Computed example of a mutant assay.
Amino acid sequence: MTDVALILVTGAAAGLGRDAANALADDGHDVVVHVRTPARLTREDDSARWKGVVLGDLARLDDIHDVARQASGFGRFDAVIHNAGVLNSPEQTTVNTIAPYLLTALMDKPARLVYLSSSMHRSGSTDLGRLTDGTATYSDTKLWVTTLALAFASRWEGTVAHAVDPGWVPTRMGGAGASDDLVAGHRTQAWLATHDDVTPSTGGYWYHRRTQTPHPASQDKEFQARLIHVLERRTGVPLD
C-alpha cells in the first residue's frame, strides 16, 4: 500500500468510526468520512481534517446508493472500513448487513475491505428468512456481515477482506458499563486498513490484532453463497 492511503470510514460521526478515522488522519492518511447528516460533524476542525465527507442514511436503500456514488467521486479507495452499525433497532438489518453488501457491490473494489463484527455474532441465526421478514436480531446481522467479509476474502484479485470484533467498548452503543478497552476498539481496523504485515493476509476474524475462530457458518461456502443470493434478490444488485 502507498505511504498515504485513501480510506473511507462509514459511520464516522462518533464512537469507533470517529476514533478510527482520527487515528488514520493522525497517521497522515487521506480519510473520507461517512456521516448521516452534516449536523453530525460539529467539531471546529472537521472541515479541514478530512479529505472529504459523504452523506446519507444507511437505513435507506436510496441513500446507500447515493453514498456509493458520492464515495466513487474520490476514485478507488485503498481501504474501506464498514463501521456503521445500530443495535436493537428496526433498521439494524439494513444498516448492519444490507448497507455493507450494497456499498461493496456498487463501489470500485479497494485494496482492503474491513467489516465490523461483534462477539455476539456467535449467537446469530442462519435462518435467512429473518433477513427479509423483519425478525432479525443484532446477533443475526453481525453473523451475516461476518459471513460476507469471509466470503469476499478471496473473491476479487487485488482485494483482501477481514472481519473485526472491536470488543464491548464504552461508546454510545456499548454503554458506559462496557468493560473492554476503548482505544483497543479501533486499533485493529485501522491497522488492517493500512498494513501489509498481516497474517492471514485475507479472511481473518480479528480481536485486538489476534485472530479468533468465528461462527462456523461464516466460513461455510454454501452458507456464504446462500446469503449473497438472498442479498442480491433483496437489493436487486448483483455482487459481480
Rank of each mutant, 00 (worst) to 15 (best):
M1V: 14
V4Q: 15
L8S: 05
V9G: 08
G11V: 00
A13R: 02
L16F: 00
L16G: 00
G17I: 00
R18K: 12
D19N: 13
L24W: 11
A25V: 10
D27K: 09
G28W: 05
V33R: 00
V33S: 01
V35M: 03
V35I: 13
T37R: 15
T37G: 06
A39H: 13
R40T: 11
L41I: 04
R43I: 08
R43M: 14
S47L: 02
R49Q: 12
W50V: 05
W50S: 03
G52F: 07
V53S: 06
V53E: 06
G56E: 06
L58M: 12
A59N: 01
D62L: 09
D63V: 04
H65P: 01
V67T: 04
V67K: 01
A68P: 04
Q70R: 11
Q70L: 08
S72W: 01
G73F: 10
G73P: 11
G73L: 12
F74V: 08
F74D: 10
G75V: 09
A79N: 04
V80E: 13
V80I: 15
I81L: 14
H82C: 04
H82E: 11
N83C: 11
N83F: 03
A84G: 01
A84W: 00
A84F: 00
V86F: 03
L87Y: 09
S89V: 06
P90L: 02
E91A: 14
T93M: 07
V95Y: 02
L103I: 11
M107E: 06
A111I: 03
A111E: 15
R112V: 15
L113Y: 10
Y115E: 05
S119F: 13
R122T: 15
G129M: 04
R130S: 11
R130M: 10
L131F: 07
T132R: 12
T132H: 04
L143F: 11
L148Y: 11
A149F: 12
A149M: 13
A149C: 13
A151I: 05
A153C: 09
S154F: 11
W156Q: 01
G158T: 08
T159E: 03
A161E: 06
H162F: 05
V164N: 04
D165E: 10
G167C: 04
P170S: 06
G174I: 08
A178L: 01
D181W: 01
V183T: 15
V183W: 05
G185V: 09
H186D: 09
R187W: 06
R187N: 10
T188K: 10
T188D: 09
A190S: 15
A190Y: 09
A193S: 13
A193E: 04
T194S: 14
H195W: 05
D196N: 14
D196H: 13
D197W: 10
D197H: 11
V198E: 03
P200Q: 13
S201R: 15
T202R: 07
W206A: 06
Y207F: 15
R210P: 00
T211E: 14
Q212Y: 14
T213P: 02
H215T: 09
A217R: 03
A217S: 08
S218I: 08
K221Q: 14
E222S: 08
E222F: 01
F223D: 07
Q224C: 12
R226C: 07
L227H: 02
I228T: 12
H229E: 15
H229S: 14
V230M: 09
V230R: 11
L231Y: 00
E232P: 02
R234M: 08
R234Q: 13
G236F: 07
G236R: 05
